[in-house]
């Protein structure tokens, strides 16, 4: 019962704030609406017993990416008065946009429905997810882990290079 209430609270929060983020004419509101979206997603992760992912969501998305977005938006002058909607929306545009969106939704739905989710029957406390994650990262998924870290390293070096170039 309690879990349901919490779930629906977070779900509503996510959907509403995501709508604000998409539909708001003010970029700043969009960015700050993302705060609540990310937070809600973290809440959902907690409900799924994925506490490590939940906290990572907060740390990376709210503490990192959102701050970066806010920085970008804040440091651009007169951002609040910019009309971010595109100009003319004709039938042609609507058609293609709708088609692509539908295809994406269909694809995601198909994957979501066809995946054999590993569900836990109870919401009992799962001890030390971080141990499991750490072990699998360094055993089963080592290649993915290492290649993504190499990618990040390249990104860091590239950023430093661009920033330092005269």
């Amino acid at each position: 019962m309690l879990v349901e209430i919490v779930f629906w609270t977070f779900a509503v929060l996510i959907v509403l704030s995501a709508l604000v983020a998409v539909l708001s004419k003010n970029v700043i509101y969009s960015v700050f609406a993302l705060l609540f979206t990310f937070f809600g997603v973290a809440g959902i992760y907690v409900l799924l017993n994925a506490d490590f992912i939940a906290i990572t969501q907060i740390l990376i998305y709210i503490g990192g990416i959102l701050v970066l977005l806010i920085f970008g938006v804040m440091l651009t002058s007169n951002i609040t008065s910019v009309d971010i909607r595109s100009g003319q929306i004709g039938v042609f545009h609507t058609f293609w946009a709708g088609l692509i969106s539908l295809l994406v939704i269909a694809g995601i739905s198909y994957i979501a429905l066809s995946t054999n989710w590993a569900t836990s029957s109870s919401h009992s406390e799962q001890k030390a997810t971080i141990e499991t994650i750490g072990n699998s990262l360094l055993t089963n998924y080592l290649l993915a882990f290492e290649s993504s870290s190499v990618l990040l390293l390249i990104a860091i070096i590239g950023a430093a290079l661009i920033a330092r170039r005269k």
Binding site: L35, F52, I55, L59, I62, G63, G64, K127, T129, I130
Partner: peptide, 16 residues
């Protein structure tokens, strides 16, 4: 069981 990590994560709210 992720208390330390959690404290670090919610520190992000202060920035926001």
């Amino acid at each position: 069981n992720l208390g330390l990590y959690y404290i670090f994560a919610v520190g992000a709210f202060a920035v926001i």
